[in-house]
Write a protein that binds this DNA or RNA. Structure first.
Length: 369
DNA sequence: AAATCGGGGCC
DNA sequence: GGCCCAGATTT
């Protein structure tokens, strides 16, 4: 185990570490959360940035800090408001865990944040990476934070040929990372490795000539030419086809909506009642009325059979929307009546947002024509 | 150990 | 169309 992690002589990686920190001091991007890293702002940042590009998440980080400047404010908010602010960012369990964690910290920890990576891991939504990142960057703890950038940088540095999404490859990277970590400035070291991965040791077209570690790297193009081939991954996700039918049950300016269960796709978000076609079957031309709703309950139906494709990372959704008109005395199934205006204040999936835009466009076209 | 969970940007 | 992104949680 030790041999694997020490294929680079110690004097070399000590020197490499020094040059990395030197490089970081000069070339780091001016990211706003580096200016005044408080536990709250750093925690918020790390949760938002999980599996998210900086450019995409930045706006959300600002929005959350503006809406809820501290953990007490966040804890006092409603889950619906948090989900609404999170809308469009994806992985919605992060938002629900964030809200739950804020209440835990505010009410059960007297507003006190954890002070070690081990404690941080007990906070909902905080796993190994996030715990290490906050504790090292914000609280000076000597613990390695390993994200996608680090996996790529270290696998290339060591020339790890085993898949990094399997224990064999992952363990090599973890072992070396803990050893390599600067005991002087662990937070800066962690940020430096991530920054190198984000700006120089990139997934495609890495800029090895600009890398402060190129002379000791086991896969630099100038040495072995392995850089484009590392890291390797074993995991391959098969994308399934799913056909969804949404029933837009309306009455005048009101619409029937329900909240999705916490588990599963779009957990906790609001939607029009929907159902999945069995066994991935394609849509039939004539949709049945939603369950619990008889033909006689509707005054008209099938007004607009809008349909489009929506891609998730693990699903290919074909979404069909069917509009039914009824009256508000009718409460067909789980959910509630909402005015269009109030419904828009709720967090909804991107796919429904698309539908909504198309519908309004269609209505304005009809009115003008 | 493997599956699940979004959406957007890039090639 | 595939890949990846400042990963965590559930099964």
């Amino acid at each position: 185990m030790q041999e694997k992690s020490l294929r680079i002589p110690k004097k070399d990686w000590i020197e490499g570490r020094r040059r990395l920190l030197e490089w970081f001091d000069v070339h780091q991007r001016p990211l706003p959360w580096r200016e005044n890293p408080t536990p709250y702002a750093t925690w918020l940042c790390e949760i938002i940035m999980q599996q998210t590009r900086i450019e995409q998440g930045l706006r959300y980080w600002y929005d959350f800090l503006t809406l809820w400047p501290d953990v007490d404010a966040l804890a006092a908010s409603s889950l619906d408001d948090v989900l609404k602010a999170w809308q469009g960012l994806g992985y919605y369990s992060r938002a629900r865990n964030l809200h739950r964690a804020a209440q835990l910290i505010a009410h059960e920890r007297d507003g006190q944040f954890p002070t070690s990576a081990k404690e941080w891991k007990n906070i909902p939504g905080v796993g190994p990476y996030t715990a290490a990142a906050i504790a090292s960057i914000c609280q000076g703890e000597c613990v390695a934070a390993i994200d996608g950038n680090v996996l790529r940088v270290i696998s290339r540095l060591l020339g790890v040929q085993e898949p990094i999404d399997r224990p064999a490859g992952r363990n090599q990277i973890e072992t070396f990372s803990e050893e390599w970590l600067s005991e002087i400035k662990p937070g800066t070291h962690n940020e430096a490795v991530m920054e190198l991965g984000a700006t120089v040791c990139t997934p495609r077209a890495p800029q090895c000539p600009a890398c402060p570690l190129s002379d000791i790297c086991r896969s630099d193009q100038a040495n072995t030419g392995l850089t484009p081939l590392i890291p390797t991954k074993a995991g391959k996700v098969k994308v399934q086809d799913v056909h969804l039918t949404f029933h837009v049950v309306t009455s005048g300016q009101n619409v029937w909506m329900r909240q999705r269960p916490e588990n599963g796709v779009w957990g906790g978000l609001w939607e029009f009642p929907s159902h999945v076609e069995q066994d991935g079957k394609k849509h039939t031309t004539a949709p049945l009325p939603p369950k619990g709703m008889e033909e006689g309950d509707v005054s008209s139906h099938g007004a607009w059979g809008h349909s489009f494709e929506h891609i998730l990372s693990h699903r290919r959704l074909t979404c069909r929307f069917w509009i039914w008109k009824t009256d508000m005395n009718f409460k067909p199934f789980e959910g509630r009546w909402l005015s269009w205006k109030d419904a828009k204040k709720l967090a909804i999936p991107r796919a429904l947002d698309r539908f909504w835009l198309d519908l309004e466009k269609s209505q304005s076209t009809n009115m003008s024509s």
